[in-house]
Design a protein around this nucleic acid. Structure first.
Lengths: 264, 264
DNA sequence: GATTGTGAAGCCCTTCACAGCA
DNA sequence: TGCTGTGAAGGGCTTCACAATC
């Protein structure tokens, strides 16, 4: 998941709930698909199914934007596409820079979903001098030295960080200093930014860990266990420190189970 | 963001809130860093800062796992690392397969964060016969034909889909039929799965769109506008359909602004 | 004195259910 | 009749604030 800075606590009259904003792109994608199939109108029920949400939620979401539907009929597909695009700011052009052209950066540069949504890759930046000049996705990689100049010349306000974790904060600072006010962070680090700068993060390993948590539960359920003591004990997980072993006796797990089972 | 199927509605006695589960990997990462620096204990305040959350939230989160701290002192780093790892199921080995070895799939295969967290890339699968046998991240790519066999032979329960959108559902169906019960989806499509299967999605373009929304607001504020009419009107956004123009007169935006400004 | 663990309050979001409208 | 738009109810998460504990 990605979390943005909770900025502007829903102040500003026209407050669209953050949760709704996060779903608008989903609706937009579904609507675009309908539009390409020349479907003229769609009901909340159908659109909700296509977007993977429930219809009451969808109607509530749209109600924050205005009354864009027709009772008894549904929503005009083209019109909704336009309204949501406008609301999201996709009717304007957003130049973005991608910093860190490793495997992931290259994947991002090649990702078609950007260009098709009003985002334009203005530059690819990498710290490795050997990368400079090499074309990736048809764009010549530029060296980090030129970062500030690139930001300013292109009026970039959105930056994507795909560097190793160690370099992320430094790159972030430079981006912000140069005028970037929105950052999409793929590096597994918490970025510190001044007020007024938005950060969203995408962490691949975090998503897998969340899946693992649920997967473990499933396995535990099958065997009738709580699911938390898991199948471990196989190989050496680092033994908990001395204090831990002692403390384990006083553990009051919220459930009463997990009776201090830990590898010797 | 990634959203899982809301399965098991917080039933099962030991219910850890989903929001808490989503933060555990964050804490774990911060704790691992402390552990590597041999820091013995940490207060909720310090750890919260390192993880980018507030301390009350962190303490509440930990309280769901049990009473793992010491009042007046803080938390034992090593012990917490162990407890959270166990809770997340990272003390066991999770073989995963990655399907779709394009730019993104390759990036994922090379991503170090997986291996370091108990995840093992058991196989790379691609539909392109030309890819078969090619090594990516030190692993030979296998053809889709072998998907079922691979899943079964390796006891894979977690699959990663990095294919184009068009192929995603089909791949998903095959994964599920072969026994996969958790899927991380990078394809920009809504996947339909049977009950009991978890899906989390990561959509790069959605994250950017959310940033664009906020970016647009910032721009609007500077100029004292509501922020919603944006800077558009430059070039031809597809004109809304006829019906829309008519409907525009009745629009009641939740704020009263946006007086039907739309391109001719 | 310091810091955790947690009831209670508040907020946001979801869901329900139905009035309102085409 | 069919479907949207929305008040109201409900649920979950966050934040507060302080008692419990070391």
């Amino acid at each position: 998941m990605a979390t943005g800075r909770t900025h502007r606590p829903a102040t500003r009259s026209r407050g669209i709930p953050e949760a709704t904003v996060a779903r608008l792109p989903l609706y937009l994608r579904a609507l675009t698909a309908l539009s390409e199939r020349s479907v003229p109108t769609v009901s909340s029920e159908e659109l909700a199914a296509a977007a993977g949400v429930n219809s009451a939620k969808l109607r509530k979401d749209f109600s924050y934007l205005g009354s864009y539907g027709t009772r008894g009929v549904g929503y005009d597909v083209e019109y909704l596409v336009y309204q949501i695009s406008r609301e999201l700011g996709l009717t304007q052009d957003w130049p973005v820079v991608i910093v860190g052209i490793g495997n992931l950066g290259a994947a991002l540069a090649n990702y078609g979903g950007f260009a098709s949504r009003g985002f334009r890759v203005a530059a690819l930046i990498d710290a490795d001098p050997a990368m400079a000049g090499k074309p990736v996705a048809g764009i010549a990689v530029q060296h980090t030295d030129e970062l500030e100049q690139i930001i300013q010349d292109n009026g970039v306000s959105i930056g994507v960080i795909a560097t190793p974790a160690g370099a992320a904060q430094q790159v972030c600072d430079r981006l912000v200093a140069a005028g970037v006010t929105s950052i999409l962070n793929f590096a597994p680090t918490v970025l510190t930014v001044p007020d007024g700068v938005d950060v969203r993060k995408v962490d691949l390993s975090i998503e897998l860990q969340i899946l693992a948590f649920h997967e473990q539960r499933k396995a535990g359920e099958e065997t009738g266990q709580g699911g938390s003591e898991a199948a471990e004990g196989l190989e050496g997980t680092p033994a908990p420190p001395a204090r831990a072993a002692a403390a384990a006796t006083d553990r009051k797990g919220p459930d009463g189970d997990v009776p201090a089972v830990m590898p010797a």
